[in-house]
Simulated scan of single mutants.
Amino acid sequence: MVRVEQVAKDFPFGSAINNYIIGNLPYQKWFVERFNAAVFENELKWAATEPKQGVLNYTLADQMLDFVRANQIVARGHNIFWEDPKYIPSWVLNLTSSELELAVKQRIASLMTRYKNEFVHWDVSNEFLHFNFYEDKLGENATYEFFKAAHEADPLATLFMNDFNVVESCRDVNSTVDSYISKMRDLRRFGVYMDGIGLESHFGVPNLPLMRAILDKFATLELPIWLTEVDISDNFDHNQQAAYLEDVLREGFSHPSVNGIMLWSALKKNGKCYQMCLTDTNFNNLPAGDTVDKLLKEWQTGVIKSQTDEHGAFSFYGYLGEYAVTASFGGKTTSSTFSVSRSDETRHYSIQI
């Protein structure tokens, strides 16, 4: 008899969180039971960590990181700079060019020294296709210098651009797949390499053929693609949100070049989310939460029990991750573990009793 059980998943599937999760044991329990990845909604952004010039406050981010560490959750760093002036600290807006140049250097050094090796990714430039505050102030090469400095500060972190309306729509002329790739090529000309493709994925009615075609085109670059902020517009009722969410998640998960999916569903104390909540304030699932639970259950191998064939062989199809195997024969039992990782070849594993 052979018993195989998937004990951990390799595919990062997670959600945004915010400071409402600090000390909130029901929220923490609900989150950990489902997700193996997280991204902070606002707590790492410049406006949150330095609301006044020279006054740094990482208290909330540190407390959220304690939760992430304690539960061995993969965390994305979001974000170092946001190009949209609406979300840049007010004191930054009025700096001279020389003052701003110093401030951004201090921002990178402070943030990434404090959290070196803590976040697997950093969104270095958020919404670079739509806004250009720093380029207007510091010159057209400003963002490229941000990538250089971020890489020097944390060489192990994967550096992303992150933008919206790339896979969601073909009507936004600022954020076509071609404009995104053009920015990446510009980075390379300046000797800077962006390591990952961040697609925010804030959907209205999903155009799945468009989404698939854009993912296919990005896949030719052979870089990790992440759907970084998946949600469905609150213009739809909860049931329609859930139906569209399932379409998007299935499309993303099934694409071989998508390496991770993050939902943008951080719950606030007042029960609100950006667009799409998964639960109510008592952590009872809304329809979107039920959809997530259904897919998470579907996308795991679970427990398989079977007999070997006459040659002592047993085979199965499984999702990427860690597995525990137990084999019993003639009154003897032995146990071991193995991993299933990306490969074009069948994974062979031998166990002897």
Results as ranks from 00 to 15, higher is better:
Arg3Val: 07
Val7Cys: 08
Phe11His: 10
Ser15Gln: 08
Asn19Val: 00
Ile21Ala: 03
Gln28Met: 08
Trp30Asp: 11
Arg34Ser: 09
Ala38Arg: 01
Glu50Gln: 09
Pro51Ile: 04
Gln53Asp: 07
Val55Gln: 09
Val55Met: 04
Leu56Arg: 04
Asn57His: 09
Ala61Cys: 05
Ala70Thr: 10
Leu95Cys: 12
Thr96Gly: 11
Lys105Asn: 13
Ala109Glu: 12
Thr113Ser: 15
Arg114Tyr: 03
Tyr115Glu: 07
Asn117Gln: 15
Val120Leu: 05
Val120Ala: 06
Asp123Thr: 08
Phe131Val: 08
Asp136Gly: 05
Asp136Ala: 02
Tyr144Cys: 13
Tyr144Phe: 14
Asp154Arg: 05
Leu156Thr: 15
Leu159Ser: 03
Asn165Gln: 08
Asn165Thr: 01
Val166Tyr: 00
Ser169Lys: 03
Asp172Leu: 03
Thr176Glu: 03
Lys183Gly: 04
Arg189Cys: 13
Gly191Asp: 08
Gly204Ser: 10
Arg212Lys: 15
Ala219Trp: 06
Thr220Gln: 05
Leu221Asp: 01
Glu222Gly: 04
Asn239Pro: 12
Gln240Arg: 11
Ala242Asp: 08
Ala243Met: 11
Leu249Pro: 09
Arg250Asp: 08
Gly260Ile: 09
Met262Cys: 11
Lys268His: 15
Lys269Met: 11
Asp280Lys: 14
Asn285Leu: 05
Lys297Pro: 06
Glu298Ser: 10
Trp299Phe: 08
Thr301Ala: 04
Gly302Ile: 05
Ile304Gly: 07
Ile304His: 05
Ile304Tyr: 11
Ser306Gln: 13
Asp309Arg: 05
Glu310Trp: 04
Gly321Tyr: 01
Ala324Thr: 08
Phe329Ala: 11
Gly331Val: 05
Thr334Arg: 12
Thr337Pro: 02
Arg347Gly: 02
Arg347Leu: 13
Tyr349Asn: 07
